Amino acid sequence: MLAALPVAVLLFDDEGLAYANPEARRVVELDATAASSPPHVEAPAVVDAVNRARRTGQAIDCELERDGRQWQVSASPTACGQVGVVITDLTEVRRTDTIRRDFVLNASHELKTPVASIQALADSLRLATERDPARAASMLESLEREAARMSQLVRDLLDLVRLEERTGEEEPAEADLAELVRTQTTRVAQAAAEQGMDLRVDVPDVARVAGSPGDVRIVVANLVDNAVAYNRHGGTVTARVRRAGDEVVLEVSDTGIGISPEDQQRVFERFYRVDPHRSRRAGGTGLGLALVRHAVRRLSGELQLDSTLGQGTTLTVRLPPAPTSVAAPAQPPPP
């Protein structure tokens, strides 16, 4: 029974190691051929915990680090004079704790900024209405902008939690990817035009994909938003949908600032920004690509990033088509 446990278990008697299950032999690197005699344990932390437990008659806990992993060692005396040791891998637990702690810190910081702005603007607005009514309208616009930013951050946080926690089978659903691309590119058309950008849309009449329309909208909206926000003045944004074999492919590309190879490893992390100042000026929450990654996973799709610093970025999403759906041919451009 001990041999089948997923944790490392060892038993020590007066002569040394009396038993080690397969997981223990892996963790402390015991020689499997040494079963006929007590093998030497190459783990000083384990040996020290055993000696202390035998000497004090009490349970001893310590930690062991090996090959970049962290382990908890618990040594306890037994009624028959042996010392039992259980070694548990803490690496994933610690990593999860770090991610959660960083998430709370980042979320608190991101919420603190617009809240502080709203409070300051509210105080200034009260004085302006009394002394300088002409400035009141400008302050109201700033107040609305900060409130909208905070509202968007809260919505993104709720979407992220929903995408991360959703489990089990879901009701069959489908979405028209082509229509969502048309809708989202129309939404950002004015912002793109103000920056002199060329916004190009190449989609079929219909391109149905399997999955929640809300999740597909999250993917399209955030990719289009990023392509505009991180583009250069006078640049080009292209959103394209096509059928490739048994997949429906969405490509959103820009000719903007691009992403360095180092940043490409982290852009899908929550609150990670390649250019924090530019992102905040554009109203970004730092959650866009994290939302895209989780939504694509929920849609059983694939996500690919291709970027060259200073030249632009292309994000490609491959999604399963809705059952029996076929993307309609694209309409020719107007003369």
Rank of each mutant, 00 (worst) to 15 (best):
E130T: 13
D132M: 02
D132N: 08
P133C: 02
P133F: 09
P133E: 02
R135P: 01
A136T: 15
A137Q: 14
L140C: 11
E141C: 08
E141F: 13
L143S: 06
R145T: 15
R145C: 07
E146R: 08
A148N: 04
S151W: 10
S151G: 15
Q152F: 09
V154T: 10
D156E: 11
D156W: 12
L158F: 13
D159G: 01
L160A: 07
V161L: 00
V161S: 00
R162P: 00
L163G: 03
E165T: 15
R166P: 01
T167K: 05
E169N: 02
E170D: 06
E171P: 00
E171V: 15
P172H: 07
P172W: 07
E174S: 14
D176C: 03
L177M: 06
A178P: 04
L180E: 13
R182I: 01
T183W: 14
T183P: 08
T185D: 04
T185M: 11
T185L: 11
T186I: 09
T186S: 15
T186Y: 15
R187T: 15
R187P: 11
R187E: 15
V188H: 15
A189W: 08
A189Y: 05
Q190M: 13
Q190A: 14
Q190H: 14
A191S: 12
A191V: 12
A192N: 02
A193C: 01
Q195N: 10
G196P: 00
L199N: 04
R200Y: 10
V201K: 06
V201W: 15
V201Q: 05
V203C: 07
V203I: 09
V203T: 12
V203S: 06
D205F: 11
V206Q: 12
V206A: 11
V206L: 10
A207D: 02
A207H: 08
R208K: 12
R208F: 10
V209R: 04
V209T: 05
V209L: 11
A210G: 07
G211H: 08
S212L: 00
S212P: 00
S212D: 14
P213F: 08
G214K: 02
G214L: 01
V216L: 02
R217Y: 12
R217K: 15
I218A: 00
V220W: 02
V220H: 03
A221T: 15
A221S: 15
A221E: 15
L223N: 06
L223C: 08
L223D: 02
L223H: 03
D225A: 14
N226Q: 12
A227C: 04
A229V: 09
R232W: 05
H233A: 08
